[in-house]
Design a protein around this nucleic acid. Structure first.
Lengths: 217, 217
DNA sequence: AAAATTAATTTTATATCAATATATTGTAAC
DNA sequence: GTTACAATATATTGATATAAAATTAATTTT
């Protein structure tokens, strides 16, 4: 009998990672509201696992900035303030271009094709949902070829701890974003590393600023 | 009888934090060598705790870049390469000045007095050990007044994951460092925020570069 | 000697126990 | 009668110990 090859990738994911994903989605969707206490036993029961994976998941979420934990007191959902958003975009505007610049030499032909493809699809689509997804893929691919594990970890920590779809609140955002993506893409294709970094930094900063002003009303 | 006031701060520290400190010191000191497997049961027994705090500690150390973990395989001590050191100093040279600039408005009179005091003591001391300790305090105070929790977390993650005393390998390092500390301090006292950031960035970059070249031989 | 099966080691997850903090209730003072 | 404080009770986290899954090592068979 042929040995069962390791097909079940889904099952191989660790339990605390699954739990983390579930809780993160619940927080970002708003099912778990800011200020709400997260009782380990309750969550464990609801999700259908024991308390340990829940604990580890909460610790990860704390690092991502989605919950706060205090010894013997437990975890509560963190209220995302305007200052948080400012911080997130400030950090992204520094770290993502840094990673992009370090990673450009490592881009394969396939990577470049994918970037072009994502960009083209973003230009063409009408669906906000599809756009959000493509936008996340585009940005992720931009920074993910750097060889700096700590830098990569920091960026991913920030990205996961914040809803990806908020930028879509802004009207006219998509058109500007597409133009800026185009600039970034061209700079990369021309091997103009510095310019690519600057375009990306500007793109993120502007998005952040517009998000802030749109929240002020 | 007077109620026992909560004096026992030491005891209130969580077990996994203590374990984490112990393991971190052991790795940075070299007692646990790069490539060495870290078996949870062994460590738990040696330290005298159960396996769970050990696990949580290992996860923290993974984030700090001191160990690598793979599902169902366990943790091994990470070999710190030259690329790691380059990355660490690159990140520090970006993040610490960022935190300093954001934190300068929040400095109290006491903070400024402490910075002066640490600097003065560094100039005066002959002991490498004392100098290292003061240097860590000085840098920590520089960046710790920022109100950006994520930024602060990233900086602390980097700092903890790397031996603080390595810069002392370099001959003549202390004299140059003192001069640069002096520049940083003066810029802060003059409320020249940009300049303070630039001096700090340069200080960290130079230290990193000298460390790299000193490792090349 | 190579492959496959079994045994061991080690990690992951669950279940139990202990320590700590929160909440409720009762008592005393105003 | 109301408010503030204190003591007790409950609930929740922290730590340990035990059971299950997975990987590595070893042994046996072809």
């Amino acid at each position: 009998m042929s040995k069962t090859v390791d097909l079940r990738i889904g099952n191989r994911e660790m339990l605390h990672n699954k739990v983390c994903t579930v809780l993160r989605k619940a927080i970002l969707k708003g099912d778990l509201k800011p200020g709400e206490r997260l009782v380990q036993t309750e969550l464990a029961e609801q999700i259908g696992v024991s308390r340990m994976p829940v604990r580890e998941a909460l610790r990860t979420l704390e690092i991502e900035g989605l919950v706060t934990m205090e010894p013997h007191k437990g975890a509560i959902v963190r209220t995302i303030s305007k200052e948080d958003i400012v911080e997130i975009y400030e950090l992204r505007a520094i770290l993502e271009p840094m990673a992009l610049k370090k990673g450009i030499p490592n881009f394969t032909e396939e990577d470049l094709e994918n970037l072009k493809k994502y960009h083209q699809q973003m230009v063409e689509t009408d669906s906000d949902e599809v756009y959000t997804e493509l936008n996340a893929k585009f940005h992720k691919l931009l920074f993910s070829r750097t060889q700096s594990p700590r830098l990569l970890g920091f960026i991913e920590t920030i990205s996961l701890g914040f809803a990806q779809d908020t930028p879509l609140i802004i009207t006219g955002q998509i058109k500007k974003s597409n133009q800026e993506h185009e600039q970034i893409l061209q700079s990369i294709l021309n091997q103009n590393i510095e310019q690519a970094g600057n375009h990306l930094a500007h793109h993120i900063s502007r998005t952040g600023e517009e998000l802030i002003t749109s929240l002020d009303k």
